[in-house]
Amino acid sequence: MKYFGEGLSEKHKQLNSIIRQSNKIEQAKEIFLEIHASLHLSKISGTRPNEVDSLINDLCDNEYAIMPTSKDETIAWVMWHIARIEDIAMGILAADGDQLFNESWRQQMNVSITDTGNAQTDDEIMNLSKNINIEELLNYRNKVGNRTREIVSSLTQDDMKRKVLPKAIEKILCEGGVTSQQDSIWLLDFWGKKDVAGILLMPPTRHVMLHLNDCCKWKEYIRTRNKFFRS
């Protein structure tokens, strides 16, 4: 069921169809930025209030740390997960540079992990969700979103076709962006087969769309049910 992002899938298909065409680089970047604006708080792109504002702005801290059913995660975990993946994928893979996350951000957010959280158990997800500083988590995601827009605005057609570099994949592992656990390290193989266009089509767009849809579904569930799997 669709809870978030009406029409975004169609825009994403359009982006996919032109993103590697040399004569449509500016159009592709424009569509990317339009999609991306819908996946972050409106203040990131300066647009009118959007669905992310509606999702986030009235959430209570305790609602971030509820696991609705045994098949779900939490909204806090999703915000951490999508922010970390966008930071890593855009900063290290797309820009061939650095991630924003560092020890200072780790302390500000009050987290013990540095990776994307892919391999976390339910207990670990709940521990992260109950202890993370939500305000700083959202600040971090905002910074990541702003930096993504800067990176994409400066990309050339040659950049779009550039393959992800092996040194970038190694850097992610060395900096703790993923762990050696099977449910985490597979990301390196997945990303390593991409070009920059392929990165833009998943971590900062399609991937976020799917997770925000889950968050909107969970928010509705949390506010209409009395019993949850974990809280």
Rank of each mutant, 00 (worst) to 15 (best):
E135P: 01
N146E: 14
T156E: 07
A95C: 09
D115M: 09
S112V: 10
Q120P: 00
W105T: 06
S154L: 09
G145W: 00
G198S: 07
G176C: 07
A94S: 10
I169Y: 00
D98C: 06
S180V: 06
M202K: 15
I199N: 03
Q182W: 05
K161N: 13
I92W: 01
L173D: 00
I132Y: 00
A168F: 02
L201E: 00
M202V: 13
I151A: 12
N142T: 13
N118F: 05
G192R: 07
L137R: 03
I199C: 04
W191V: 13
G97C: 05
I132F: 02
D195H: 11
I151M: 08
D122G: 12
E103V: 07
T114I: 10
W186H: 15
N110Q: 08
R106E: 05
K193G: 06
P203N: 12
C174L: 15
L200M: 10
V164K: 14
K171R: 03
F101W: 09
K171Y: 00
A119Q: 13
N102P: 04
G91A: 13
L93F: 12
F101K: 13
I92V: 12
K143N: 09
V196R: 06
M90A: 04
I92K: 04
D96T: 10
D98A: 12
N131S: 15
T156A: 14
D158Q: 13
V111N: 01
N102C: 13
S180I: 07
K163Q: 11
P166K: 06
I151D: 03
V196E: 01
D158S: 11
R149D: 02
F190Y: 14
Q120L: 15
Q107P: 00
L138M: 14
Q181C: 04
Q182V: 09
S104P: 02
G198H: 05
L187I: 09
G145A: 11
R106H: 08
E136C: 06
Q108C: 06
I134D: 06
V178C: 07
T179Q: 04
W191I: 10
A119E: 12
Q108M: 11
N131F: 03
R162H: 03
N127L: 13
I88H: 08
N118S: 14
Q157A: 08
W186K: 13
E150C: 07
I113K: 15
S129P: 02
Q99I: 12
F190S: 15
I172M: 07
S104L: 11
I185E: 00
M160E: 02
G198K: 11
R162V: 08
M90F: 00
G177F: 02
L155S: 13
T116H: 06
Q182E: 12
A197K: 03
G91D: 03
Y140F: 15
K130I: 10
W105I: 07
G145I: 08
I172H: 00
E136T: 05
M160Y: 03
I172N: 02
V178N: 02
L137K: 04
C174S: 15
I151P: 01
C174D: 12
V111W: 00
L128N: 07
T114F: 04
